[in-house]
Simulated assay, not measured.
Amino acid sequence: MTATTVTYPAGATQSVGTVVETMDAAGGRTAVVLSETAFHPVDTAWPDQPADRGELVFADGRRVTVVDAVVGARSDGEVFLGPAVPVRTGTDGWEFFVVHLIEEEAPAVGDRVTVTVDAAHRAALSRGHTACHLASLALDEALADAWRKDVMTDARGRPAFDALAIQESRILRDGSRDVYRIGKSLRRKGFAPEALDELEAVTARANSILTAWLSRGGAVRVDVDGPALEDRRAWVCALADGEVRIPCGGTHVDSLAEFAEITVALSVESSPGAVELVMTTTATPV
């Protein structure tokens, strides 16, 4: 079996592929692997963006709902699906493919299948994902003065609070929710937690930065190294001070002009041995 060709990085919401393999999956579902697909699956290693919604349309006109789409992987003849995949997508020696999970009878290998993705749902998640990246960069800049030591920097050269503190990121329809842990490790790296005592000011700075970026309506694209699921991809966005590039396997808008507004709200919550900063991002489409 060859690796799945994916077309969603270019924004495709429909594709035609050949069934190359089917297998039984948990919960009585059937796993369908196609030679080509527009379906964006949940990534096992970093499951921030949910899977697309949509259907498989068979040559006889039968339409089957895809109840989930996950990453599958094979090594030495053994297959793993979704959360059971033990390695990151792209690991050498492994084969990776998109798995469409259905609750219907398996199609025959060799059948031609049209993939139809719910375009409105995809668009809402794409806005959420682009907004999430912008919000993380804005938060990094808003907290740039909260560091006592030199640390790794983000795509814009600011101290990378997001990368150093992130615990969980979830892409939502027209938004996202990110959770950051401020514990001993981050303080040892030089972060001054008292910066969060002025949370309203930090929030205002981040939102001011986001407003300035959107006013320019910069172009957004996804650069790809190749057509296979495991090929590296990057989110690229034109901002006032130049292009920024972040490795990313998700889907995105084509331009910041698609947003009327992006805002963040910050809150602090207690957790065992640390404090958590929660950033909720809301994207309002034009």
Rank of each mutant, 00 (worst) to 15 (best):
T2D: 15
A3E: 15
S15C: 09
G17W: 03
G17N: 10
T18E: 15
V19T: 02
T22N: 10
R29T: 14
R29Y: 07
A31I: 03
A31P: 03
H40A: 14
T44S: 15
W46A: 15
D60I: 05
V64E: 08
V66T: 12
V67T: 14
D68Q: 13
V71T: 15
E78N: 10
E78W: 06
A84R: 12
V85C: 09
V85W: 07
V87Y: 03
T89N: 11
D92T: 01
D92C: 02
D92Q: 02
E103W: 01
P107W: 00
A108W: 03
G110Y: 03
R112K: 11
T114G: 07
T114H: 04
T116W: 09
L125W: 02
G128A: 03
G128F: 08
H129C: 05
H129M: 03
C132N: 12
C132G: 09
L134Y: 06
L139E: 02
L143W: 06
W147S: 03
D150Y: 12
V151Q: 02
M152Y: 11
M152G: 15
A155T: 00
G157M: 00
F161S: 04
Q167R: 15
S169F: 06
L172I: 05
R173M: 05
D174W: 06
R177T: 06
I182Q: 07
G183T: 05
K189S: 11
A195P: 00
E198L: 13
A204W: 03
N207I: 08
W213Y: 01
W213S: 06
L214D: 03
S215W: 04
E230I: 04
W235P: 01
R245L: 02
I246D: 13
P247C: 08
G250M: 04
D254H: 14
L256K: 01
A257W: 02
E261V: 08
V264T: 13
S267H: 12
V268Y: 09
S271N: 08
P272G: 05
A274D: 00
